[in-house]
Amino acid sequence: MNNPQHIIPLNVIQLVSAYALILLSLGLARLQRIGHEKQLLWSSMRMLFQLIAVGYLLHLLFAINSPLPVVLMLLTMAGFSLQIAGSRIKKRMPNFYRVVGSSIIIGCGGVTFYFCLLVVGYSPWFDPRYLIPLAGMIFGNAMNGASLAAERLSSEMHERREEIECALSLGATSRQSAGEAIRNAYSAALRPTINTMAATGIVALPGMMTGQILSGTEPIIAVRYQIAILCAITGAVAVTSFLIVQQGYRRFFTDAHQLKRE
């Protein structure tokens, strides 16, 4: 699907020219006195070094073309997903890392396996040119869903304590008493993905598709890939968030259907 002869390889001067836009952003930030200039500069530097490092790492992985380094890379990505999801949340649910970690591994791992091997169907299964970018997109988006599901579930369980205890007192099970909290958390986790699907192609052209088009891929083929990956992302967010809320709500209760004290 690649036609490298169509790509203009960006050289250092072109990249420096692109960075002029960061300097412009810095100037505007200073003009508005928002006080985020250092953060903007630091983030742009992080982006530069992180992407260059990933570029060389991918180059190395492509050259080695062996399953073990690819799997290690995927596990590292899953670990970072979990760490970032955890750092974003102020009030974590009990056993946060166990709940979210297992959900990301099962949800994203399962969807990635299904999508790469059965939908796209490339060979060998570990081909880093396919597996790493596709898994990266699936993990990255599922991480956002995971953060939203976990954070919303914690806040709903906190805010609805009276409602939950009232239901428990009337003979409800833990699941029945937390039903509204579970529904709201799951809905919050899915909402951005639903919005993205609805807006794709109208409000914004997705990064994967534009990247493929820039690389010379026929737009019709690029669009097919984009449709397929959006389906995979939706599936990963849905499964991961579902596992989080289903496992997560139980952590707020004892086996005797008692709400644990905060």
């Binding site: 009276e162 205890e165 009232c166 007192s169 009337l170 005797a256 008692q258």
Partner: peptide, 13 residues
């Protein structure tokens, strides 16, 4: 069973 108990022992919070 707490679910059975709470039907016999009702509570008004």
């Amino acid at each position: 069973d707490p679910l059975v108990l709470r039907r016999k022992v009702a509570m008004v919070l």
